[in-house]
């Protein structure tokens, strides 16, 4: 066991899953939400020459995806350090 205790292992995993679900909620919101389900509503809004819903579907969702992954990388590295389970 690389964790100090079973409680630490469980806490680490809970924090990891919470972070993952938070980021996946945003992932869902920008693509399925803004790009598909709410696209007609958002299309009423103009955004730099685009209809906003259309922009999310063809540009915005992709940019957000990149940010999400790098936020995950950064937060997970910190979490690994906090519980001392990072790699050398």
């Amino acid at each position: 066991m690389s964790f100090e205790s079973k409680e630490h292992a469980a806490k680490y995993w809970r924090e990891n899953v919470r972070l993952m679900l938070t980021l996946l909620a945003i992932w869902f919101a920008v693509s399925y939400g803004a790009g598909i389900l709410l696209v007609d509503v958002l299309n009423e809004i103009k955004f730099f020459g685009f209809k906003l819903g259309f922009w999310f579907a063809q540009q915005g969702a992709i940019y957000t995806f990149i940010v999400l992954i790098f936020v995950y990388v950064k937060k997970m590295n910190a979490l690994d350090k906090k519980y001392n389970v990072h790699e050398d």
Partner: peptide, 16 residues
């Protein structure tokens, strides 16, 4: 857009 979001969004799942 299904291709644009579909073929990029999968990487979020892969990474996370």
């Amino acid at each position: 857009s299904v291709y644009l979001m579909g073929w990029t969004g999968g990487y979020v799942l892969l990474a996370l």
